[in-house]
Design a protein around this nucleic acid. Structure first.
Lengths: 207, 207
DNA sequence: ACATGTGAATAGGTTCACAGCT
DNA sequence: AGCTGTGAACCTATTCACATGT
């Protein structure tokens, strides 16, 4: 397990979801082909991916669902809850805050920030909207590990730098800005217009 | 330009954004190194990517910004506006509807759908929330090309099949369901909890 | 008998380095 | 002189096919 390829890591959450579904319907053991079909890949890929994590299966039998869930969760660092902040509490930020899929998977939204004086101090799903001026202090005090960045374009780089400076090493970036941050800060860009443009390419291609 | 690698396609919208920025500040010509630095990649990658689209540069000079924007836009099928529908008009659907970044890039939201009788008929940013029962008819009538799927998990597969059956060939899938659809329908999964889990992995790794 | 785990083969992408144009 | 365009080299990831273990 010294080095796990990036693409394998991207698939681990998918496997985890499939395994949870299997468990929910009472399946105790799955083989690589079944898991592959659920995940939308092939059996060889599943075995290779899981082999990076160790020898998790039983030859002639398959993978124990419960055990594999525990192991993959552990590798993904999901055994403890993760503390998440949303920075930029507009419509998108608010929608993400309300999204059950995050809380259900152990991601606790522990703070939300906005710059707009109209919003600061308002209640927000059990929390209170905090001012961006309190970013550094609050992120440290609450021990936030992941920030979801949904500010306007103009503020993105500056706010991201402050998030990183506050000791947060992971940022999910919903802005259309390419963030320049110090080594050791992992950014995942989620650019909706990029996704749509890629879809547009395939439309243009096929028609 | 017979075959463009998938990864190149994923980068084209990034280049387009950088080129727009360059144009906005009055830069008429860029070379591969400058574009690479803006896009967060390297010069060889930029040249290779653009070479798949044709011989777009001038040796000894660089790339004409205006011309390259036109060419990349054309390849991405962005010369005409794209007609988009949002299916599932909850918080996320509403947030995406209001997101300027889509309209600005030529993606017109022409219809929004929901199943909830409370929402159907309500005004929604210049539109009226349509019932999911009208999906097939409306998608065809409005000539929708791309659907953004933000329904609850339970409805995702069924609704996606109906979207596909209505002749829509591109779906941006915000649900955590792996859609099984006929050949020729391009799906882009955008799973927020997957993204967070991947970030969690890197946190677990580095600490 | 059966399904995993894995080296080997293949495919796909990236980087190098330089020939070819302007 | 300078920068593109591109074959070649390299690297990463996927698929194959079978030895290994239960």
């Amino acid at each position: 397990m010294d080095h796990v390829p990036d693409q394998t890591i991207n698939r681990l959450p998918i496997y985890l979801r499939c395994l949870s579904q299997a468990r929910a319907v009472g399946i105790a053991v799955v083989n690589s082909l079944q898991l592959a079909q659920m995940a939308g890949t092939n059996a060889a890929q599943v075995r290779k991916d899981l082999s990076y994590l160790g020898e998790l299966g039983t030859r002639g039998v398959g993978y124990d669902v419960e055990g594999l869930i525990a192991h993959v969760s552990d590798v993904l660092g999901l055994t403890e809850k993760r503390r998440v902040a949303i920075v930029g509490y507009g419509r998108l930020g608010g929608a993400l805050h309300g999204y059950r899929g995050l809380a259900d998977r152990g991601f606790d939204i522990v703070a939300v920030f906005d710059d707009d004086p109209e919003k600061v101090g308002r209640p927000a799903g059990g929390l209170t909207v905090a001012p961006v001026s309190a970013l550094e202090r609050d992120l440290r005090d609450l021990d936030v590990e992941i920030a979801i960045l949904t500010t306007p374009t103009s503020a993105a780089q500056e706010v991201a730098e402050r998030i990183a400076a506050a000791g947060v090493h992971a940022i999910m970036n919903f802005t259309n800005v390419r963030l320049e941050l110090p080594e050791g800060v992992k950014v995942r860009p989620v650019d909706l217009s990029v996704e749509l443009q890629v879809l547009s390419f395939y439309l243009a291609r096929s028609s």
